[in-house]
């Protein structure tokens, strides 16, 4: 049975920046591997470390945010390459959900399919949350996928998440493979019906 995501609580790391692409989330050279294992340590590597491997100032290196399980981002997050390595790295670095204004299409789908909810807030609400977290890194935040809201301090703000993705997460249906397999012989019918490329003899 897949995990059901109804209520996610935790502290957040505020990561400012528009249109952060997946090359930044996980630089290509760390994709030279046959599995996703260990990817978490390379999350935002080139922004967190200099060419000698010494840490640079970055929210993910900031001790005040250690142990946070929510990633706070701005708009257009996850643009560019379709690499699932990006959400995999975020998840493997210990994050349970991402809160932002908007997400790139493929990134959103990849994250949802591995059980990493990406929820959107209105710009003003998001900015207030950013400021609250920047002021108080110990702030506890609740992401409620059932009530469709995010709660922090004395605030309650509505969240948006595409209904089909929300349902999949709440019901534990986010990995669709089981349901896809159930189509069984219907698939064979489509395979017979739809042409595929064949090399002429």
């Amino acid at each position: 049975m897949l995990e059901k995501f109804t209520l996610i609580r935790g502290r957040a790391v505020p990561l400012r920046g528009e249109d952060i692409d997946t090359d930044r989330i996980i630089p290509a050279r760390f994709m030279k591997a046959l599995t996703f294992e260990g990817l978490g340590q390379y999350l935002f590597y080139d922004e967190r470390f200099d060419e000698r491997g010494n840490p640079k100032p970055h929210p993910l290196n900031d001790p005040r945010y250690q142990g946070a399980s929510l990633l706070l981002v701005e708009s257009g997050f996850g643009s560019g390459s379709s690499r699932e390595h990006a959400p995999q790295a975020i998840k493997r670095a210990g994050f349970k959900a991402i809160i932002g204004e908007s997400f790139a299409e493929i990134f959103f789908g990849n994250a949802t399919a591995i059980g990493l909810p990406c929820v959107s807030l209105a710009k003003e609400d998001l900015e207030r949350l950013f400021q609250a977290v920047e002021k108080d890194p110990t702030l506890e935040i609740a992401v409620d996928l059932v009530a469709k809201e995010v709660r922090f301090a004395d605030q309650v703000v509505p969240l948006t998440l595409r209904e089909e993705a929300r349902e999949a997460l709440v019901e534990g249906l986010w990995d669709p493979i089981g349901e896809l397999l159930q189509a069984g012989e219907l698939l064979d019918a489509f395979d017979r019906k739809l042409p595929y490329p064949r090399r002429a003899e």
Binding site: F36, S82, R83, E84, H85, P87, I106, G109, N110, A113, I114, D175, P176, I177, L180
Partner: peptide
């Protein structure tokens, strides 16, 4: 598509 979808 992502890798999980490649699997699918």
């Amino acid at each position: 598509i992502g890798t999980s979808q490649v699997r699918d």
